[in-house]
Structures are given as structure tokens and as C-alpha cells.
Design a protein around this nucleic acid. Structure first.
Lengths: 176, 176
DNA sequence: GGTTGATAGTCAACCAAGTTGTCTAATACA
DNA sequence: TGTATTAGACAACTTGGTTGACTATCAACC
């Protein structure tokens, strides 16, 4: 039901190309990479080599009293495996401390160290710096609008965020 | 010169978190993935399983008379190695034809087959469909603005697009 | 007509930012 | 006591590319 253009039709390459070849997605990946590369470079300049925006996000979801890895994963919207890796790396840097949860011996409680807080403060400053550059290029109100538009889209398409996830088009009714 | 927050300072986690933990980059990767996942699913529904938006981009840069792999790479903003891989995959699908350049025996000329044009037409339709969904969620003029803003940013930070590229901060003047 | 340098393309390995799959250990419920 | 669930870890894979090293050809000079 989706196959419109019949194989017999003579298709004009140029006229198709004129409709705009650039897609939104094609713009986003390089920009995402640029943002992260800039952030990592600035982190390194401040003495936090080897850390990424994912590590920053982890701090952004950490409670003062400490947080379990699963909770962090859920809040970050990633898997617990990946979150566990971030935790391990941050611990090697001395930026967090892990302690076993006394109420559940399977669980690990993650808390920030003073050095970790220092990193997080630097990371927030770096974020502001880069977003400042973005605003200088595209205008402050455009960046603000970009932000809210991306947030709307991201929440609308969150079902598609994982790589090999469900296909919401086909599993509407599982009845008899 | 970049190290502002002194290690001695008592840093408040919560107040840092309130400044907004979500960054633009963190929004873009999931959205990019969502877009691509949707596109690939729709490609498959139209009988083009295994192809991606990168393949579509290649068609978007193909001349009617045929184009060399290096030229395609340059236009697409990728490496010739990656472009060569796309060409190989498209050829396996029968969507392009490669012929040696009579004027330069090192070079390969890539031309679209009728089946390839059919794929490109489908891919353009898919792009329109998905962008239509985007517009339904965020509003047509917001998506248009998103597009132009992303384009501005992408072209401004193109130096950072590649993974391990130069750092534009230090090479401003190349002397006498 | 031979050397020297650049260019087209290929093969293979790597990278980043995650993911899935499989497993163990601990817990909760009945 | 047994069964199902949950926290976390280890390892392998995926996507969309990249870099590095190499061959074949070409261009130019001298």
C-alpha cells in the first residue's frame, strides 16, 4: 500500500533533486558530533580529558544523597549497561564514589565527590560557552526555538530512539 | 586560562542541575536516529531493504551523465572510502552502474539505473512523509526555521564535523 | 624515456556512542 | 522452599562513519 511510483515510469533525476536533497537528519549528526567534539576539547582544556557529555548528563541526574545505577539509566534514557560503564569511568577519575546499598545488596549507590562536582561545574560552563557560540551564529531566539522544537520532536519520537526497537506501525492490535 | 572554578569552592549540585542539564546535542542524536530508523523502515516497506539515508544522499548528488566517486564524496561531505562503500552496496542492489572513465583509467563513473531512480523517488517521498510528521508535531514554520538554523550551525561548525579533525582555535593566522 | 609527485580507488582497521544478549547474585513473593 | 524479578557486569554487535596504508594510473618535468 505504500508503493506509489511504478517501475515503468520514466523518472527525472534532476527534478527529484530540486526538491531538496538535504534532510533534517543529515544536518543533525554532524552537528551533534561537532558539539561533542568541542565539549570534549574544552573539558580537556580544563583538565578533564577522557570525559564526554554523557558523563556530564550522568551528573545532571545524580541526587545529593546518591543514586542507583538503574535509576540513573532510567533518568538518562540509556541502558543500565552503558550507565554502568560511565559510572566505572567516572570512578576511575575519582569523580564519583560507589557504595553498596545497605538496603539491597545487589544495588550500587553512586555519589559525587568534590572533584566530580568540580567537573560538573566546568561542564556546565562549557555547555554555556558552546551554546553562546551557537547563539552568536544563529541568534538567541532561534536557538531557543530550536531547543523547544527539538524537545517536542524528541519526545514525540521517543519510541524510535533506540536502534532496533519496536515498529509502532504494525503492532497496534494483538487481539485474537 | 580556562580554569575558572577553583577546586576549593563548595559546589552545589542542585543549583547546577537547575540551569538545565539537557543540551542541544543530547537532543539531536536520538532524533537523528529516530529519523533514520523511520526512513529505513519505510524504505523496506517499499522494497528497498538494506538502504539508508546515506544512499539517498548519494543519489541526490549524482549527475545524469554519471559522476566519479571522488566527486560524489566531495559533494556529500564524506570520505571517498565511505562513498566507495555506498557505491558498492547500491551496485549490488542494481541501483547504479559503474563504468571505467574512458579519459582516466583510475576513475569510476557512477550512473543511476532505472531501478535506482525508482528508489530515489521513493526515498524522496519517504523524506516528505517523515518531514510531514515533524511538521504535524512542531508546526510547519517551526520546522522550516529548524532547518535553516541547523544549516547555519552546520556550515559554521563544518570544521568540527570530522571526528579527529583540526582545532580551529589555534590556527588563526599562518604567518607572513 | 625515466623519475617524481599527485590523484582515484580499495582494503582493512578503528572510533564513538551507544545497543543487545547472556549471565550471576540478590531479593521478593507465595 | 521454589519461582519470578531485579541490579549489575561482561562481552559482542551496530551505525555511520573515519584514518591509514596500499595499488594503479596519470601528469609533468627534463
Amino acid at each position: 500500500m505504500a508503493n506509489q511510483t511504478p517501475p515503468q515510469a520514466k523518472i527525472n533525476l534532476k527534478s527529484l533533486q530540486q526538491q531538496g536533497t538535504q534532510s533534517l537528519a543529515r544536518l543533525m549528526l554532524p552537528l551533534y558530533r561537532a558539539f561533542n567534539a568541542m565539549a570534549q576539547e574544552k573539558y580537556a582544556q580544563r583538565g578533564h580529558a577522557g570525559l564526554t557529555t554523557a558523563h556530564t548528563l550522568l551528573f545532571g541526574n545524580l541526587d545529593e544523597e546518591g543514586t542507583r545505577i538503574v535509576s540513573l539509566a532510567e533518568r538518562m534514557g540509556t541502558t543500565k549497561q552503558f550507565t554502568g560503564r560511565l559510572v566505572h569511568q567516572l570512578e576511575e577519575h575519582g569523580y564519583i564514589r560507589t557504595t553498596p546499598d545497605p538496603s539491597d545488596r545487589r544495588a550500587t549507590i553512586v555519589t559525587a565527590t568534590p572533584e566530580g562536582l568540580h567537573f560538573f561545574a566546568d561542564a556546565c560552563a562549557v555547555k554555556d560557552e558552546i551554546e553562546g557560540q551557537f547563539k552568536a551564529i544563529a541568534g538567541e531566539e532561534n536557538i531557543a526555538l530550536l531547543f523547544t522544537t527539538l524537545e517536542k520532536l524528541a519526545s514525540a519520537f521517543s519510541a524510535y530512539e533506540s536502534v532496533g526497537s519496536a515498529h509502532p506501525l504494525g503492532d497496534d492490535s494483538e487481539g485474537t
